[in-house]
């Protein structure tokens, strides 16, 4: 087997089944993903979910991607003591064994910037979470209404 085939195979494994080769991310479970519909493509969108680490090793979430948006980042919304609401990239997020991180309204969110297509209520889109061990987890994110408050709408 030549190099190219090996690389292709590795990529295939990484994409389809984050199997035994990775240390940590194969034990990551993403629960209750959801996103709000967008109005057109000029406004950024937001997606939410709970990321659980069911393994014995800490995992670090290093990046996100989706065909829906050219740029994706995890942001944290916070409110200063003076009541000023701000938003900034949260950077890499490390999840200890047995712990979970909640992306929820008013806190952490996956921010979808430079949307390629509008986020339409009722549709879903694939979202890939990349981890520091090289593994990836892809989930289908249902798009709820703009006024949705949680995964149940």
């Amino acid at each position: 087997m030549d190099r190219m085939t090996l690389a292709a195979l590795a990529a295939l494994v990484a994409f389809s089944a984050p199997g035994k080769v990775f240390a940590g991310s194969e034990d990551v479970v993403v629960e209750q993903p959801w996103a709000r519909a967008s109005i057109g493509v000029s406004r950024p969108g937001a997606a939410y979910m709970t990321v659980l680490n069911k393994g014995e090793e800490a995992v670090t979430l290093t990046g996100l991607s989706t065909p829906l948006a050219k740029m994706l980042e995890i942001h944290r919304s916070s409110t200063t003591a003076e009541g000023l609401s701000t938003m900034a990239p949260a950077g890499e997020i490390t999840i200890s064994p047995g712990e979970s991180v909640a992306l929820e309204p008013g806190g952490l969110h996956a921010m979808l910037m430079r949307l390629q297509t509008a986020m339409i209520e009722g549709e879903t889109f694939p979202l890939t979470l990349a981890f520091s061990d090289g593994g990836e987890v892809t989930v289908d994110v249902p798009i709820l209404g703009i006024a949705a408050r949680g995964p149940e709408g």
């Binding site: 969108g45 937001a46 969110h109 921010m111």
Partner: peptide, 9 residues
């Protein structure tokens, strides 16, 4: 309205 998180919330 270009606020993706706090404003719709």
């Amino acid at each position: 309205t270009y606020c993706p998180d706090v404003c719709p919330t």
